[in-house]
Design a protein around this nucleic acid. Sequence first.
DNA 1: ATTATTTAGTTAAGGGCTTAACTAATTGGA
DNA 2: TCCAATTAGTTAAGCCCTTAACTAAATAAT
Lengths: 148, 148
Amino acid sequence: MKELQQYVHDLPLHSLVFFSLVEATANLVDVSEQYWKSKGLNGARIRILVEIMKEGGTILPSMLAKRIGVTKPNITLLLVPLENDGFIRRASHPQDGRKTVITITSEGQSLLLQNLPENRERIAEKMNTLEEHELKQLLMLLEKLQRT
Amino acid sequence: MKELQQYVHDLPLHSLVFFSLVEATANLVDVSEQYWKSKGLNGARIRILVEIMKEGGTILPSMLAKRIGVTKPNITLLLVPLENDGFIRRASHPQDGRKTVITITSEGQSLLLQNLPENRERIAEKMNTLEEHELKQLLMLLEKLQRT
DNA sequence: ATTATTTAGTTAAGGGCTTAACTAATTGGA
DNA sequence: TCCAATTAGTTAAGCCCTTAACTAAATAAT
């Protein structure tokens, strides 16, 4: 009991880093999500539109799932409101009947043009406690952390 | 169109850091959640138990909500299975009838003792691409990032 | 050529969180 | 003292994601 209470208090370095990562990231994600929410949108739908643009305006749902790191059923669910709002269009693939070609509309592109810069700005502001060299250092450490 | 495509590709430093934080954190959280899932548990319930221990074995739901950073209704939902599994116990506060005193049971304490060390170990392993001095540096940067 | 396997996408069910609305108990001000 | 306001917790509804099960189309194997 006493030992357990002490154990949960005395965190080793790895755990301290882990909890700091979780907290810092949650705060930044929150800034971003709040921004999208204020526009009646959400981050997941925006990531879909961004990924379509990265591919040149057209993509398959299965590719979206891989790129964004969510399941295929989730992509289906995300595409429904995007289509209803006119930000994307579906079409069946001419050669392969299993596939659905997703295309971003001009409305979808406008949405990104009008909102991405401000969203980036909000996130950047939240990071303004760090100098540029510190951001670079942080990026380097995070990339090294990711090298399995 | 062309400019937009370029815009979504050319990320400024702040955005690079943001996306790296999100990705690295998601991978670590995943390791932790997978561990708890393999034991038929989940991270949120464990955090509750840990927080009760930090308070000395007894706490109020509203305090849990503040400490863990979730809503009060969510605490209610999290406590139900914890009570059903015998990891916590509820009792009404003797002085203030609105309050419910939550107490961790010995089973709950055993659960932590038997699993927290291995969970920490799994997370630490995932971080083994970083040297100790790099972990310290990372921690320092994350803490500076958090200073609003 | 026909059938089995694989691939793409959707539908269904459920988990985990949120906000909004509610009940019950306590506190505080006229 | 009594009623309004606050506080604690729960219930209800809904969002967003997951896994499992399904349909349809294409590919591959005998």
